[in-house]
Design a protein around this nucleic acid. Sequence first.
DNA 1: TTGACATGTCGCGATGTCACGATATATTGA
DNA 2: TCAATATATCGTGACATCGCGACATGTCAA
Lengths: 112, 112
Amino acid sequence: MAGKNCKTTKSDRPTGDPAAFLQAAECLRALAHPVRLRMVQLLLDGRFTVGELAEDCQVPNNVASEHLRLMLRCGFFYTEREGRKVFYRVAEPHLAQLMACIEGRFLKKSPT
Amino acid sequence: MAGKNCKTTKSDRPTGDPAAFLQAAECLRALAHPVRLRMVQLLLDGRFTVGELAEDCQVPNNVASEHLRLMLRCGFFYTEREGRKVFYRVAEPHLAQLMACIEGRFLKKSPT
DNA sequence: TTGACATGTCGCGATGTCACGATATATTGA
DNA sequence: TCAATATATCGTGACATCGCGACATGTCAA
């Protein structure tokens, strides 16, 4: 009804575009899985095939393929076919920075 | 170029502690929701009550409370009760850096 | 062509997430 | 005490995710 007595004018708050938050949340969901995090970490270091990633993550090949497909659709990676093999590579440049944040918080290297 | 045997010692690859990846994935899942992302963004800017956050995010109070509880359990926030109200505040210092990464990629501010 | 290999896709069942309404708890003031 | 406010929790149903086996597609070599 009458004027809202909001203590804060809302314009001093940070950005609030709902669509952008939705998109950001979708990409975070694509990252929010231990196998997918590991795949991102590996791929930031080079290129790997489905089979190599599957072996490192200790999951069947089709499971690895499904995880990779999910991230492909978010634009994280692109693929290069070479013969029977398909190499995955990082396409989203911001992935490195984001992964660095995550590694800094959770995956600190042990100083042997 | 070669030098890349598929059966390398694996020690040249990045860190690979499975438990750490699991924990990181759990925290990312806690972030991977548009309402929760918005709440984090607001709380990085100050302290807010459940009702204030619920109004800004346009969700019922109990829904807001459930989202906050989820993030509380990840250690993202702590609470301060003042009378009937409960203020939420950021407890995890790495949240700011992580949110900055996400904002840099998805929530670019429009130039004023 | 056939067969082996690498990857991709489908359907299913188990589990998890989500928002909602109803209800419970906690605090303040009359 | 009772009522109002602010927050928290519970039960439920709709929907998504996950891992799996089975199968399909694509590639190469004999």
